[in-house]
């Protein structure tokens, strides 16, 4: 894997000079490389990984499985594009297996999410079935533990 992308995906606050040190490349090269990734749309943004469970009033998250009827020519792309437009929808994935699309949907309350599913989502043409799963607790997000587990503590001792 590209080491620069790997480092930035772990921590986007590394400075160009730190990245240059770690990768043993000139700063100008690293800066140009990052610009190129941004231009190509490989790097889409830089944001904090927030543990929303710790933020009061941050709402609820649901994962929604969708079965859809694929359309001629365009397959699943057209319906996925329409679903993406809803601001409630955080992510959309095409899946292999017992359903077709997986969405994550954010709302202020369970009622909001339910209303979104029943009124907006189900009303779309081509939706055959939905299954909504509400998330109870986040343990790990984007590879980062959100949970101060015993196993995360540094228990190393000074030997001699």
């Amino acid at each position: 894997m590209d080491k620069l992308l790997h480092l930035l995906s772990e921590n986007s606050t590394f400075s160009v000079s730190e990245l240059a040190s770690m990768l043993g490349e000139p700063e100008e090269y690293i800066a140009a490389q990052i610009r190129e990734y941004e231009n190509q749309g490989i790097i889409r943004g830089y944001r904090a990984v927030v543990n929303w469970d710790e933020v009061p009033g941050s709402g609820v998250l649901a994962l929604i499985e969708l079965k859809v009827a694929p359309q001629k020519q365009k397959g699943f792309d057209e319906i996925a594009e329409r679903i993406m437009e809803f601001e409630e929808v955080e992510s959309v994935y095409l899946m292999a297996g017992s359903y077709d699309l997986l969405l994550s949907v954010k709302g202020d309350t369970i009622q909001d999410v339910s209303a979104f599913v029943s009124k907006k989502l189900s009303a779309l043409e081509g939706i055959l079935a939905t299954a909504t799963h509400f998330m109870l607790r986040r343990y790990k997000e984007n590879g980062i533990s959100l949970f101060d587990t015993e196993s995360e503590k540094d228990r190393r001792e000074m030997g001699i």
Partner: peptide, 28 residues
């Protein structure tokens, strides 16, 4: 006695120390 040990008897008395002293991998 090991000089490392002697120094770390002081470290162990303190809280919130950021250590760069351990001689073993941080990986599991």
């Amino acid at each position: 006695p090991s000089g490392i040990r002697r120094f770390f008897d002081i470290v162990n008395e303190m809280d919130n120390v950021i250590s760069l002293s351990v001689g073993e991998p941080d990986f599991k």
